[in-house]
Structure formats: C-alpha cells, structure tokens
C-alpha cells in the first residue's frame, strides 16, 4: 500500500515524473499516486487594490484551469492504465506544499521533475527540486527532463 506524491507543473517534465513514479509502484498491490499541482503564490507579494478586489475570482479560475488542463488529463491516463490516483491543486510555495502534502498523506516519497527554471531566480532562491531535496521529510526522487 505505497503512496507516492508526484509534483506536476503542466510541462513535459511533469509527465516524465508521473511515468517514473508509475514504474516505482505496484498497482496490483494497492499502491497509488497523488498528483499535486502547485500554483506559485506568496501572501507577501504586492498587488494593486484592483487586483485584490478580483482576487477571489482569479483564484477560482486558476484552480479550474489547473484541474481541467493538467490534472484531469493526467488522472484520466493513469486510470486507463489501471493505476489508482487522485489529484489536488494548491496555492503556495511548491517545495513547501509538496512536502506538507506528502507528510500529511503518509507518502513513502515525492517524485518531481527537475524544473526548467534557471538563471537569477533559482540562483537567489534555489529551485523547487533543490529546496525539496534539502528540506523534505520523505525521500525525494528527481527525474531529469531529458531522460
């Protein structure tokens, strides 16, 4: 009854991560996957008054889009292959949320693809993969995108 958490970001890398996670579990033994899509968001970002007024609506839209375009197709594909899986969309810091969900669900590990983010941002704040590897409470598997 192993559970693995898989991070999706709507990129081909996410699909690679799902593929790899599938190869690590035995669906016939009751193992399952939990797909997580994190919309990067900070409560400490600066927004205009106008953006704030429409924020609740925008949030609902963001969640709906992530559900429809990324999660639903991925879950559908897994179901077709007989893999038990569920999915969740959350706002926040990707590394923190993935670790939190894995911890809450008692997952055996987290599988993510190496993110394509590069340059200044990842130099300053570290990439999602690097942060997760350093801080997660469960084992983390990082799948190279070109593999």
């Amino acid at each position: 009854m192993t559970l693995l958490v898989v991070g999706l970001d709507g990129s081909p890398g996410g699909e690679k991560a799902v593929q790899h996670a599938r190869s690590l579990i035995k669906p016939e033994a009751g193992d399952s996957l939990k797909l997580v899509y994190v919309i990067e968001w900070s409560p400490f970002s600066f927004q205009t008054a106008e953006e704030n007024a429409a924020r609740h609506k925008r949030r609902e839209e963001e969640i709906a889009v992530a559900q429809e375009r990324v999660l639903a197709p991925a879950l559908e594909a897994l179901k077709a292959k007989g893999v038990a899986a569920d999915g969740v969309v959350r706002h926040g810091d990707a590394a923190e949320i993935l670790d939190e969900i894995a911890d809450e669900a008692g997952a055996a590990g987290i599988v993510i693809a190496r993110s394509s983010a590069s340059g200044l941002r990842s130099r300053l704040f570290g990439s999602v993969a690097a942060n997760l590897v350093m801080n997660a409470r469960v084992p983390v598997t990082v799948v190279p995108v070109s593999a």
Partner: peptide, 18 residues
Amino acid sequence: PKDAGEVSHFQALTAALS
C-alpha cells in the same frame, strides 16, 4: 493555509499603503 491564494492581510495593507 487552506485560504492560500486569497488576498492576505499583508496584501490588503500594502495596497492601501500605496
């Protein structure tokens, strides 16, 4: 944390401050 993605106190305060 369930309200993540909604307008935070910080964001309402800074929008008014601007």
